[in-house]
């Protein structure tokens, strides 16, 4: 539901952006060159659906489940290649579940703020243009203890594919008017240092590639989602070409 709000925020002005993807890393951040790096993956917020002719998103339970599994698997693989261990946050109960839920909301709020005020400069904040200093606070270390890792990764994807009739209608409409919304394929990911609570990296893309309903597509999507993801000290970061 929150992702829909973010989608609305991003989709309206998206056309005017030269780049649909924006990512930022906290200044001089890199994982330690040696030793273990464990990233806790919080339950990904994934939604996959299909657009009716009128453009209404119809969520699809099967696609969503499948996409969540395939994205998680592709992410584990991609991190292993970087010599980073991906750990899944276990299903929590009671006060722990509450804590996780609170931090999930806090992360969304902070990420929305970064996206709006810094990445896409919809409403730039004068004091937030130089440094990249956004944090969830030190209390986030409790998530590290629960998940058994030094860093935490949140990611969100939302995909709404066009149905056949939708494509046809849009094709016909394009002959008489230009503005017709179409597919939604967006996502964002953020990495949090669980010792300090600082947001160390964020990547947002409102026009993502990769059909998350397929294995290859999920892998391509993860590649884009991890664009600019921090690397271990001494290694040069690579940028994914659009």
């Amino acid at each position: 539901m929150a992702i829909a709000a973010t989608a609305a925020l991003l989709l309206t002005p998206a056309a005017s952006f030269a780049e649909s993807r924006q990512s930022l890393t906290k200044e001089a951040f890199a994982f330690p060159a040696q030793g273990q790096v464990r990233v806790v993956l919080f339950r990904p917020d994934v939604s996959v659906g299909e657009q009716s002719t009128g453009g209404l998103d119809q969520p699809n339970a099967g696609w969503t489940e499948q996409a969540r599994e395939q994205l998680t698997a592709a992410l584990g693989k991609a991190q292993a290649e970087r010599n980073i261990e991906l750990k899944l946050m276990p299903e929590l109960t009671g006060d722990d579940a509450k804590l996780m839920s609170d931090y999930r909301k806090l992360f969304k709020t902070v990420a929305d703020s970064v996206i709006k005020h810094r990445l896409f400069l919809l409403d730039p904040l004068p004091t937030k243009q130089e440094k990249f200093d956004w944090t969830l606070g030190e209390g986030a270390s409790r998530l590290g203890a629960l998940g058994g890792g030094e860093y935490g990764l949140f990611f969100y994807t939302m995909d709404s594919y066009e149905s056949g009739s939708r494509k046809l209608a849009r094709l016909l409409a394009s002959t008489i008017s230009e503005e017709q919304p179409s597919e939604v394929n967006m996502g964002y990911a953020g990495l949090v240092d669980l010792k300090t609570g600082d947001l160390v990296w964020i990547n947002v893309d409102v026009k993502m590639a990769g059909d998350v309903r397929t294995t290859e597509g999920a892998s391509l999507r993860i590649g884009e989602l991890l664009d600019g993801f921090p690397v271990r000290a001494g290694i040069k970061a690579t940028k994914v070409k659009k």
């Binding site: 659906g49 969520p59 339970a61 839920s101 609170d102």
Partner: peptide, 22 residues
């Protein structure tokens, strides 16, 4: 059907969070 499963799943997700609401 497929439509209902999709809507149920979305609401299940919402409910997961609601359970932890302050």
């Amino acid at each position: 059907d497929e439509t209902e499963r999709g809507l149920w799943q979305q609401m299940d997700e919402y409910e997961r969070e609601l359970k932890n609401s302050e």
